[in-house]
Design a protein around this nucleic acid. Structure first.
Lengths: 214, 214
DNA sequence: TAAATAGTGTCTCTCAGACACTATGTC
DNA sequence: GACATAGTGTCTGAGAGACACTATTTA
């Protein structure tokens, strides 16, 4: 059967845009927050990994496919940031892009294809096509907002960790130092003490904590 | 010239989804937050106003067109909420929907086509197709989050208003009463006093305030 | 012992919440 | 005068920020 809309037109009578996905995959380096980029196919330069949506595919699956095939990275679960819809944003034609973002531990990018990818600080992302610089800015502020509310929501740390390790991660995401005692009193109620202690370097042994069940 | 992607396919070789927009237009009634709905074209029932994106059109323009042609409402500026992308969400075919939301004063819905539209409380939206119930929930929580941070960001009130009027609007959006003195101390630093006072009903005259420039 | 880190006591300042009081209008 | 609303003083408790102290390890 053929569905028609209010003007009597069939669905297929409407011109349809291409729909792409782009992903700002952030991680932590010694220099702070950094973003994964891939070489552009056409000519030089770098861009965020992205791809066109395939028929019947979900957006999240397209993002994961782009990361797998273009960067050799697997197992991420990016979140939707928003749609970029300027009809002239892509000179290849009418392309909507749904921006995504994730923040993952460096180990998850270890297996990446190094010839075609790079990880650069978000403060110096280089020259990027389309709206990719804006996508990175949104990804960073989204990560900062979430880390300001919960302890390591993106599991950058393993199951158990010391409060020092947690604070260093939060400082790297926030981009500025955090007060040691205030930070402890803010996050400790949201963590589960394990009772175990560990020694990492000099200083008194630190207790190990877990995230609360959620 | 013809652009090709990494697999050598032309852009137009990819099947493309239809892209729709839907809008949850909220307003205030005596019963609190309410949402604008339009009659469904196919058979009975109600839905949020929406339409298919036209070629080269921006999403915001499609939303405004839908509100104008389907509800007779003009001059709104809905914000993007997110993309609904379940390939089977619409049995007419592969349709992505970009959800939008706005919150407007009742006067802005005065001119609406009453035969084809209704305004019902968000707490009892009726049976709705697609993801429209979820869109309303997101629109409400988005409005509540923004009203918790700024005084009347959506200009439900005119340029000048008393603190009582402002508080009643915030209570209606929040869905629960707010403490009079605490509310005043929280928002007064964000407002500009005009010096003028007005008498509305019994009681001591109240000062008129304006929103801060922004 | 010196240095480094962990954990905690404590003071101050701010602010939300709550109660109450004074001020000024309508009926 | 009775009542309703506007505006403000003030107390309390929670929490952030800051400083300092004790505790426990490595080198």
């Amino acid at each position: 059967m053929t569905y028609r809309d209010a003007s009597g037109r069939r669905l297929t009578d409407y011109p349809r845009p291409s729909v792409a996905v782009d992903a700002a995959v952030l991680t932590l380096t010694d220099a702070g927050l950094a973003v994964l980029q891939v070489r552009r196919q056409d000519g030089g330069g770098w861009s965020l990994p992205g791809t066109f949506l395939h028929e019947g595919e979900r957006l999240i699956d397209a993002v994961q496919r782009a990361l797998r095939t273009k960067a050799g990275v697997d197992g991420l679960r990016p979140r939707q940031l928003g749609v970029f819809d300027d009809p002239h944003r892509d000179d290849r034609g009418w392309v909507l892009s749904v921006a995504h973002a994730d923040l993952v531990p460096p180990a998850q990018l270890e297996a990446r294809e190094r010839l075609w990818t790079r990880v650069v600080p978000v403060t110096a992302p280089g020259r990027l096509p389309y709206d990719h610089a804006e996508i990175i800015r949104r990804a960073v502020s989204d990560a900062r907002r979430r880390y300001a509310e919960h302890p390591d929501p993106d599991h950058l740390l393993p199951e158990t960790f010391t409060l020092r390790e947690l604070r260093l991660v939060h400082e790297a995401v926030a981009g500025h130092p955090l007060q040691r005692d205030t930070f402890r009193r803010a996050v400790e109620p949201l963590l589960v003490p394990t009772g175990a202690t560990v020694v990492r370097g000099p200083g008194r042994p630190a207790e190990l904590f877990e995230r609360a069940e959620s």
